[in-house]
Amino acid sequence: MTMAPERLARLERLADRQDVVDCLTRFSRGMDRLDRDIFLSAFHPDAIIAAGPFVGSPPDCFDWAAPMHEAGQVATHHNLLNITCEIEGDTAHSETYYLFVGRNRDDSNWIAGGRYIDRLERRDGEWRIAFRTNAIEWSGIVPTMALPFADVPDIHGNGAPARSKDDPSYRRPLVNLRDLVTPG
């Protein structure tokens, strides 16, 4: 069975777009897990990042941001929302709305929103960010509430959240370690 050229071109565009989204996601996961290798895998080695007062290379950005997040928060979530992506050949321009949430060490919660504006390039068949700028549009502190289900004795039986490779998201194979229970 042969595929129509228009359909094949559309599938190639979708595959490229998914590769771009996967790249953007690696940045968020790398920052939230404080995993330098995953963070760096989202950027070309010669990329430039402009984030707040920082303007420089991906390794220098991680070395600046990770200690700041580690000292200030016990957890961070870089949530990616609406993503537009314009691909032309081996260059893509994307705008990604984000919602940042940090559980601060003083038990307050910091929330901020904005947009990552990126130029990505496909080099050697791999999409990575070549330039990123961050448009921070709002920020605030929200009240803290008790975490839900904190009183469940084995709530972390499948692994406690961690900002390291101890996080359950790294475990392979991922299997249930908790007893089966239907609350009632």
Rank of each mutant, 00 (worst) to 15 (best):
residue 139 S to I: 08
residue 2 T to K: 14
residue 149 F to M: 15
residue 74 V to K: 05
residue 140 G to Y: 07
residue 132 R to D: 05
residue 41 S to Y: 05
residue 107 D to P: 03
residue 150 A to R: 15
residue 101 V to T: 15
residue 39 F to K: 02
residue 175 V to E: 14
residue 146 A to E: 15
residue 66 A to H: 06
residue 3 M to Y: 07
residue 26 R to Y: 01
residue 88 E to R: 13
residue 49 I to A: 09
residue 182 T to N: 11
residue 87 I to A: 01
residue 16 D to E: 03
residue 120 L to M: 08
residue 61 C to Y: 13
residue 138 W to N: 09
residue 107 D to S: 09
residue 124 D to S: 14
residue 167 D to S: 08
residue 53 P to Q: 07
residue 87 I to G: 02
residue 158 N to T: 11
residue 172 R to Q: 13
residue 84 T to N: 04
residue 67 P to M: 01
residue 144 T to C: 10
residue 104 N to Q: 12
residue 13 R to N: 05
residue 106 D to V: 04
residue 62 F to R: 03
residue 150 A to Y: 15
residue 170 Y to L: 06
residue 101 V to A: 14
residue 175 V to Y: 03
residue 48 I to L: 08
residue 125 G to Q: 11
residue 73 Q to A: 13
residue 38 I to V: 13
residue 96 T to Y: 00
residue 125 G to L: 10
residue 106 D to K: 03
residue 23 C to V: 00
residue 81 L to F: 04
residue 68 M to G: 13
residue 87 I to F: 00
residue 94 S to H: 01
residue 143 P to K: 12
residue 53 P to F: 03
residue 26 R to G: 00
residue 182 T to C: 04
residue 155 I to Y: 12
residue 116 Y to D: 00
residue 20 V to W: 00
residue 180 L to N: 10
residue 10 R to P: 01
residue 180 L to D: 14
residue 132 R to S: 09
residue 131 F to L: 10
residue 67 P to Q: 01
residue 55 V to W: 01
residue 91 T to V: 15
residue 156 H to A: 13
residue 118 D to K: 02
residue 9 A to G: 02
residue 34 L to W: 01
residue 150 A to W: 15
residue 14 L to I: 03
residue 28 S to N: 07
residue 127 W to S: 08
residue 15 A to F: 04
residue 57 S to P: 02
residue 148 P to W: 11
residue 178 R to W: 02
residue 158 N to K: 12
residue 153 P to T: 08
residue 159 G to R: 12
residue 2 T to A: 15
residue 151 D to E: 15
residue 111 I to F: 11
residue 176 N to A: 06
residue 159 G to A: 12
residue 144 T to P: 10
residue 15 A to R: 03
residue 93 H to V: 11
residue 146 A to W: 11
residue 145 M to W: 10
residue 122 R to G: 10
residue 83 I to Q: 06
residue 136 I to V: 12
residue 117 I to Y: 01
residue 50 A to V: 11
residue 164 S to K: 06
residue 121 E to S: 06
residue 142 V to S: 11
residue 116 Y to K: 03
residue 84 T to E: 07
residue 9 A to R: 10
residue 65 A to W: 08
residue 135 A to E: 14
residue 84 T to H: 06
residue 55 V to Y: 04
residue 155 I to D: 13
residue 5 P to R: 11
residue 46 D to Q: 09
residue 79 N to G: 14
residue 80 L to R: 04
residue 104 N to R: 14
residue 138 W to E: 09
residue 67 P to I: 01
residue 104 N to D: 09
residue 173 P to C: 05
residue 113 G to D: 13
residue 93 H to E: 14
residue 114 G to A: 05
residue 81 L to P: 02
residue 93 H to Q: 12
residue 132 R to G: 05
residue 183 P to A: 09
residue 166 D to R: 10
residue 83 I to M: 04
residue 161 P to L: 12
residue 179 D to Y: 00
residue 110 W to R: 13
residue 14 L to N: 00
residue 169 S to Y: 09
